[in-house]
Each structure stands twice: as C-alpha cells, then as structure tokens.
Amino acid sequence: MQITMTVNGVSHTRDVEARLLLIHFLRDELRLTGSHWGCDTSNCGACVVWLDETPVKSCTVLAAMADGRRVRTVEDLARGGRLDPVQQGFAECHGLQCGFCTPGMMMTARWLLDHHPDPSVAEIREALSGQLCRCTGYENIVRSVRWASEHEAAQPAGGDGGTGRQAGER
C-alpha cells in the first residue's frame, strides 16, 4: 500500500507492507536511525516521536496510521548547526550516558518544555514516565531537562532560545 507522510518537514511517499510499524518506516525506509527500537512492547519509550505535535511510541503505531500526518524525530531538534537546548542540556549534564533511551527522552522533553517552560522535577519525572533508561541514570536526565528549561528562560525576549529557529518555526 502507498502512504505519504511529512517527516521533519519533508514529504515522503513509499509503498509499504500493511504490517510495517512507524519506527521501522523511519529507520529502515527513511534511514532516520536516531529513533531507537528497544523493547518492541511499548514499555521503554526509546522510539518516541511526535505524531501531529504529540509524542507517541512509534513501535505501537503502524506506518499506515501515519499516512497523511506529520512526524517529527530527534533528527529535527538541531537547527542551523546549533543544538536544541534539550540536546545541549543532555551534553552539559551527562544525560546521554549510553545513549539508547536518549532520542525518546529528548522528544518528550522538548514537548514538555514547549507546553510547560518551567517544569518542576516532579513534573519532569512524570512526563518521562513510561520511558526507561537502562543505565538507570534518571537523575542526570532530569537535570538535563532542568538545564534546558533554565537556559531557554534566560534567553532575551524575542530571541530564539538558543534553538536557531525563527518565530513561528516549530
């Protein structure tokens, strides 16, 4: 069957098998291997991407279910050669560790900060629930998100928050 979806602002049309999952479409068809395929049972969250602006676990979404919709992956965070503050926070606070859970953590964190710019530690932990770090390094991940929150807030009004984005740009 033929599907078309917009991934990171670029439209892609492919013939796919009916059973193909979104995570495999992204990794195998589009070669966007930033999103990771982990537990395969919707438990670990390494595969979290945005589907029409909301984070979902792409190992439990068919590629066909994303037909005609917009998908955003971790590859879309950095813009113009500059890291997103979330990425910068993970680098500054050693939130990456082995890196396997990182793409899902970052996509959830980006969504959280877009909707709650100054989240508490408890709110960060709840937002990241359902996402597992096999290094068990949650403290550093939470610190990374707080770092991103504080550094985005410190940007002057009208600035791009360090994202390198223009006003209105996602």
């Binding site: 919707s42 969250g45 979290v48 589907l51 909301t54 984070p55 979902v56 676990k57 439990t60 979404v61 959830t108 937002a127 629930s129 359902g130 996402q131």
Partner: peptide, 9 residues
C-alpha cells in the same frame, strides 16, 4: 498504567 505518550493513541 499509561504515560501521556500512550494516552495520545
């Protein structure tokens, strides 16, 4: 037993 990522779907 579902985070908001699951609740979205």
């Amino acid at each position: 037993l579902a985070s908001f990522k699951v609740q979205n779907m």
